[in-house]
Amino acid sequence: MGQGDIWFKGFIFAFAASIPLLLVSLVVVLFFWAWPAIIHFGWSFIFSSAWDPLADNYGALPFIYGTLVSSLIALLIAVPLGLGCAIFISEIYKSKTGEYIALMVELLAAIPSVVYGLWGIFVLAPFSAAYIQPVLGGMFGFLPLFQGPTSGPSLLTGGIILAIMILPTITALSREVLQAVPYSLRESAMALGATRWETFKVAVFGPARSGIIGAIILGLGRALGETMAVTMVIGNRPRVSASLFAPAYSLAAVIANEFAEAVTELNLAVLIELALILLVITIAVNGLARYLVWQTTLKK
């Protein structure tokens, strides 16, 4: 190996090695900046609902609650729809039209979240208050989740906008997983006289299952970290309410709204600690998803 080769290899390795370095320094720097808040509040920070910047008293519970519940609502809506859409494209309607639908779904993943947020403020939120919430209240009003006054910007509206945003992710990934299932399996089931439903149930869903779960969790990861659209429709009120119709708040939303105006050092540290909590949740969720997706796609 010549002198030039050694230099070249070292040069490009430095760039490659900067990626893990960047990641580690990101975590370390955030931890360092959040440290004043971590020692000031301890573990009780996570379970406290206080939010009073004037008195310098803070708690993370309403934001963690808002993030988790809005993402959960998003999954409840987007998983059946996205999975159905993926089955439609890859199992039922395998033609030019199916490919166009797939392309369209992928393009929609490229639309900026602030645009979804704009639509959310002026179209979805009023629609949610006028139609979705009264209907849900009428059907399930006996549950505390669906009681109370309706409100355009609310936890439910935040969940719905997230569902729309993660639909492309879930659809595209599930489609890939479904198409990784060998055709011979489907053909054997068909040859035995199975209907399309039976073919799917017996031959496709089994091998694809852990991959589909992975796709769902990757969608969840995207929902947890999504900022702008949620900030614009969730209502931005730091309180845990029993009702989904009430305004709420999320981790990413409070950072987006208050970070530029943080006054005291503790206020800044608290917001960075919230970011750290968000970071830990998303890394854990994505790690799990990747493990599950790897399991399926590596097996083929």
Binding site: L22, L26, G225, A275, T282, N286
Partner: peptide, 17 residues
Amino acid sequence: YSADVLSSLPSIVIGIF
């Protein structure tokens, strides 16, 4: 693996960095 983790981070966290 680091690149994978980096791509899954919420963009607002990178903004804070």
